[in-house]
Each structure stands twice: as C-alpha cells, then as structure tokens.
Design a protein around this nucleic acid. Structure first.
Length: 366
DNA sequence: AATACGATCAACCGCCGCCCA
DNA sequence: TTGGGCGGCGGTTGATCGTAT
C-alpha cells in the first residue's frame, strides 16, 4: 500500500537549510502567508524543497516567538505530568508550552528529561562510570535557565529508585484514589515535585484546569488552583471485575465509562474542541482503541516501564500482595481535564519570552 | 594532539486523518 | 460514498559537537 510521495524526492534538496533558504521562506511567509498550501509554496519562491520540509522549517525554527533550549523546571514538570497523562503526544504537550515546538519537546524528552528521571540505570554502553556530567559545559552554555534544571547539580535525579507498582487491595475499586496513587508515583519520580503531600511545590506539576472555560491553564498564569484535588476524573473502565459506575475519590465524582455511547456522551460533555472529546467522538471504536488514543499504554509509556518491571515480565508484583498486570493498569485514570488544544498552527499563546531566549538556527558548516 | 564515543538536535520518513471534489 | 491531496504528527536518523581517554 503506502501513498505517493508528496514531492519528487529526486528533485528536492534535503538536509540542513541555508541562511538564504531561510530568508526566502521567511520573507515570503511574512508577506504572503503560506498561501494555504505548503506543497505549492516552494516553487513560488524558488526553493528546491519539499513543502513538508518548508512547513517543518517554518514551524520549528522560523516562525516568531519561538524559544529554543533552556527548559525551565516548570516546563519540565509540565512535560512530565502531561507525558504521564497522555503519553508521547508532543503536539498537545507543546500546545501547553508557549514558544516550544513538539520537535523541541520530543528531543528534550528523549535526550534530557528521560535521563533526568531515570539516570542511566539501564544502559552503560561503555561500561564506564556514569558520564552524566559530560555535557556540562555545553548545557551550561546553552542556557542559564538550565542551571536550576539540576541535570548535573541535583544528584537525586539519577538516584531515583526503581519504583514499585502501586498497591491496591481487592476490596476496593482498582486504582481507587487514583490521583493519590499517581501523586505518589510522581513523588517517587521526583521528590522535588512536592514539598508536602498536598501541594505541588511550585504549582507546576499539574497544569491547572480552569473549570470556567474548560481549559488547561499554564501554571505560570494560574497558580492558585490545585487541580489534583479539584478536577473531575474520568476512568476508562476495562475491568470485567467491577460493576461500579461511580465512586468517589476524596469526595470527587469518578465515573466509569463502559460503553462507546457513554464515551461519546462524555465527549460531548467535555466539549467538542478538546482532544479527549475528539478521541471519544472520532474513530474510537473500542475501549482498547480509546485507551490507546487517550491515555497511557505500555508502549507509550515505555520510558516508565522500569516502574513496573515486574508487570512487564508478567510476574506478580510480589511486593503488593497481589498480582497487577498491564491490563489492570488500563483501568485508566485521566487525571487532568481535557486539554484545550490550539488548532492555530502558530501556537498563538501569550508568549513569555525572555531576553535572549531566541536562538539562532544552526546552519551547516561551510 | 588524536581519537573514540556519547549527546544533541535538525531534519526526514511514513502513517493517519481530514477535507473536498 | 469514495478516493486523492494535503497537513499534521510521532518516530527515527545522521551530522555535528563536546568531552573523556
């Protein structure tokens, strides 16, 4: 099968963009916009580039108000919490971080955040002692903002214990008090996320949900709501073992969603322009599919697999006094309300740009 | 100083879903 | 209703850079 390529791969230039190409593209878009078609754009401005390549270049590097490098602790926390919540849906995560691109966040996750969280427990290719600090010079040069990221200065990042699955007992709904479980999980992931049992340390762990407009608010803007204790939770019930459709978590309503029709209703209630609502309403033909679309699955969260090594090995989690498998994990909790995803290709947020936050694109050496 | 190797990140690839004729 | 075109997305690659040996 497969589809026809969007352009003639033999006649288009590949590889790094030159300053001249950037100038052409930027100049044209500044004056005329994209003209509604990326594919048609390169010939108009005399670029031997694929339209997709132009789009990528514009979105990731040329459009205004972009930030590169130097992720703050708050951004780290948002990325982590959203990753745990929705997996590797970088575009959605990026929509919550003004000035960041999905590519940036994806790269940052793969190269830094993962290691921040897990150190190098699994791989030590050269059999040497840990070289976690090997990039110190460049990292520090990259941004002073990184100085509080604690990549190198906070040894606890690489010393996180391998986490054990969250216990539950048979006589309570599975993952009852799920937000508490997740909170515990997050605390284990990074003790610095919380100062105490109730409050996010800097208000940044959980993007804040504004119940008034059903949107997810950047904690920078909205620091006063404790999402975890106030947000409704949606549990995708795949468990054949419970008939419960509602129970309370700390007095908050939690609903099982058993049927596709119920999912659709839920989607409607959530509003038509949320990712969850779309996932619920669109092409979501089975619970399993929905789970894959909406939330964590073992593949999406493979980076977190260490947390559940026993489960991954299909071994009972012996520390729990009971077995716990991935399908149990699929009693899903959606700890955050639906994200409002900007469909504006420019990610037009109120951008908080710092002086010097805009980096020059990297060009190939002559 | 040279080399090896890991880290970074820009860019590509290919799939998916939406839109429209 | 269907199929093609296109944009969007996530995963992956590979050139480049920095550091350790």
């Amino acid at each position: 099968m497969g589809r026809a390529p969007c352009c003639d791969k033999n006649s288009v230039k590949k590889g790094p963009w030159s300053p001249e190409e950037d100038a052409k593209l930027k100049s044209y878009i500044d004056q005329h916009g994209t003209g509604g078609s990326w594919i048609a754009l390169p010939p108009k401005i005399g670029l031997k580039r694929c339209g997709k390549s132009c789009r990528l270049r514009w979105l990731n590097y040329l459009r205004p108000n972009l930030k590169h490098g130097g992720f703050s602790q708050e951004e780290d926390d948002i990325i982590l919490s959203l990753y745990i919540s929705i997996g590797s849906r970088w575009s959605i995560i990026a929509a919550q971080l003004p000035g960041r691109t999905d590519n940036d966040i994806k790269n940052y996750w793969n190269t830094k955040l993962k290691k921040k969280l897990f150190g190098k427990q699994r791989k030590n290719l050269r059999g040497k002692s840990q070289k976690q600090g090997s990039r110190k010079g460049r990292d520090q040069m990259n941004s002073s903002m990184d100085s509080h990221n604690n990549i190198d200065t906070n040894p606890s990042w690489s010393e996180f214990p391998i986490l054990q699955p969250i216990p539950y007992s048979n006589d309570e709904p599975r993952y009852n008090n799920d937000h508490t479980s997740i909170r515990k999980l997050l605390m284990k992931l990074g003790g610095n996320f919380y100062e105490d049992d109730d409050k996010p340390m800097n208000g940044a762990l959980n993007p804040q949900y504004d119940p008034m407009d059903n949107s997810l608010m950047h904690p920078v803007y909205h620091n006063s709501i404790n999402l975890i204790s106030s947000a409704p939770m949606v549990v995708m019930n795949t468990s054949p073992f419970t008939n419960s459709h509602e129970y309370n978590v700390d007095g908050k309503a939690v609903c099982w969603v058993d049927t596709d029709a119920e999912k659709r209703k839920l989607g409607e209630r959530m509003g038509s322009d949320t990712s969850v609502a779309r996932a619920l309403n669109d092409g979501c033909n089975s619970t399993t599919e929905l789970e894959h679309m909406v939330y964590t699955n073992p593949q999406k969260l493979d980076d977190l697999e260490m947390l559940y090594e026993d489960m991954l090995n299909n071994k009972p989690a012996t520390t729990l006094g009971g077995s716990l498998h991935w399908e149990d994990m699929n009693n899903l909790v959606f700890p955050f309300p639906p994200l409002v995803v900007s469909n504006n290709e420019g990610h037009q947020h109120g951008t908080l740009l710092e002086e010097g936050a805009l980096n020059e694109p990297r060009y190939p050496r002559d």
